[in-house]
Write a protein that binds this DNA or RNA. Structure first.
Length: 465
RNA sequence: GGCGACGUACCCAAGCGGCUAAGGGAGCGGUCUGCAAAACCGUUAUGCACCGGUUCAAAUCCGGUCGUCGCCUCCA
């Protein structure tokens, strides 16, 4: 069975066919590290993680590159204001980004290239564009891309650039260029840049934003690779410009499949700094929201749909995870020897799960397959005790599914001495049939987010997510 | 002005011309339990923003209206 993706380039769903058998080369646009990334940013990274993990689930080897943009106008300005180097300025944000990815259970990419460490690659690419007459130098020493030389410009964004309205932002651009739509490849040094510059064959200056992705993607993945992703706001101008730069320089097709993730909304508006409706991952974790619940919230809505972020969704996700983990836990321990009788149920689950994700990562149907599976197993075991091989088969399937979702792994739960004492005291009261005291302690523990469950095998306890 | 996405139950959400409109959360009734919790069983849309049209058949296709959100050189 083949995977199908909605390709922004063709505006339709296409069967995925990697250039090289069994290997997927993908470039996922990373963060600009001038601040902490917010949960809206992380939606895209979690989507890319789902994409990556599902391709691996299908048996493909992944080579993923995620750039870290550690030089741009805002970074230079902020670093100069603080009187520190851009490296010192971005370091804590680079670190925080990696920590956040780990918190969200994102599988690491093979490469996280820094823009500042690839300036020579960018300069080489710009030189090629200058040689081919696609780029031009202005009096101040900056280099621009001549959009008029690239007839396909606008194909990805489906924009007719010559009829574009002059946006506010264009007027703000202080650099001189021949046409409004031309964009900067190299920005000549200006006094306000301070110490931030590179002495190169192009002169003293620094690279434009778009060129880093062209240079670094082609360096690690080759001139023509499989998948390129980002948020929908990257479609134009960023990805459009990447295509223009790369294809004009190599004469080859740049990327086969462009996948774009929709926005996360907060109060029905795009979550963004300028609107001031930002939520940071670390703040959510501090507030007690479980990372897996945050991951599921970001993961649980199809990537091409806008996702309205609410605390209700986080709580709902927490409940779902609790339910799934309880189910998994119920499969631990000894089971009687016997035949495999759940084969039909597991087989159906695998089919439904893969059919769903093959269809442009239809996560809703994939999760529905998992819930239906859990329901069917629970229903089955009510009258047919599971055998050891049944339990093994179910566990194996859950692990396989979780290699994609990554929400089931239970971190070792730690309880304080005080909490343990309360649990013991409650068990003692219960043994003594002192129900009033047992209930009081159970309520006390619940207020501490510890849930007690009395089962025929004894009392279990866990933290509420 | 140009381009695009979306509107399905109390909430989230699947659906891609044809079975009783998936699944989850929440609520309600029941089984189990010292009582709970979990689990299980049952239940909650004669209707898919609205108005027309095509068709034997429309949530699904076409046209229009309304509403929400986004992109148009910082943006995941």
């Amino acid at each position: 069975m083949s995977i199908n993706f909605y390709n922004t380039l063709s505006r339709r769903q296409e069967e995925f066919q990697p250039l090289e058998e069994g290997v997927v080369k993908m470039y996922t646009c990373g963060p600009t590290v001038y601040n902490f990334a917010h949960v809206g940013n992380y939606r895209a990274f979690v989507f890319e993680d789902l994409l990556r993990r599902y391709l691996e689930f299908k048996g493909l080897r992944i080579i993923q590159v995620m750039n870290i943009t550690d030089v741009d106008d805002k970074i230079i300005k902020a670093a100069n204001q603080k009187g520190i180097s851009i490296d010192e300025f971005t370091e804590p944000y680079r670190q925080a980004f990696m920590e956040d990815l780990a918190t969200l259970g994102v599988e690491p990419a093979e490469y996280y290239p820094l823009a500042t460490e690839h300036v020579s690659d960018m300069v080489a690419l710009i030189e090629t564009l200058l040689e081919k007459g696609i780029a031009y130098k202005t009096e101040d020493g900056s280099v621009y891309y001549k959009v008029a030389k690239f007839p396909r410009y606008g194909q990805l964004a489906n924009l007719n650039v010559t009829e574009m309205r002059r946006g506010k932002r264009v007027a703000d651009d202080s650099y001189e260029k021949e046409e409004v739509r031309d964009f900067a490849l190299w920005k000549a040094w200006k006094p306000e840049d301070g110490d931030v510059f590179w002495e190169t064959a192009l002169g003293k200056g620094r690279p434009g934003w778009h060129i880093e992705c062209s240079a670094m993607s082609m360096k690690y993945l080759g001139q023509h690779f499989d998948i390129h992703t980002g948020g929908v706001d990257n479609i134009f101008p960023h990805h459009e410009n990447e295509i223009a730069q790369s294809e004009a320089s190599t004469g080859e097709k740049f990327v086969n499949y462009w996948l774009h993730c929709e926005f996360l909304l907060m109060n029905d508006e795009k979550m963004s700094k300028s609107l001031g409706n930002i939520v940071y991952l670390r703040d959510l974790v501090k507030k007690g929201y479980h990372p897996a619940a945050i991951r599921l919230t970001l993961l649980g809505t199809h990537y091409r749909l806008k996702l309205n972020f609410t605390f209700e969704k986080l709580e709902e996700s927490g409940k779902i995870i609790t339910r799934l983990r309880d189910f998994k836990k119920s499969l631990e321990g000894e089971f009687p020897v016997g035949d495999l009788r759940v084969a039909e149920i597991t087989r159906k689950c695998v089919t439904d799960f893969t059919t769903a994700l093959d269809d442009d990562l239809n996560i809703s149907n994939a999760l529905a397959a998992l819930f239906t599976f859990m329901h069917e197993i629970n229903s089955f075991r009510l009258t047919n005790p599971l055998s050891q091989v049944d339990a093994q088969a179910i566990n194996a399937l859950l692990d396989r599914i979780d290699s994609v979702l990554n929400i089931l792994k239970e971190p070792a739960e730690e309880f304080s001495i005080e909490e343990r004492q309360l649990i013991d005291a409650r068990n003692k009261a219960r043994q003594e049939r002192n129900w009033a005291e047992a209930d009081r302690l159970r309520k006390l523990l619940l207020d501490k987010n510890i849930v007690l469950e009395d089962t025929p095998k004894g009392t279990t306890w866990k933290r509420k997510l």
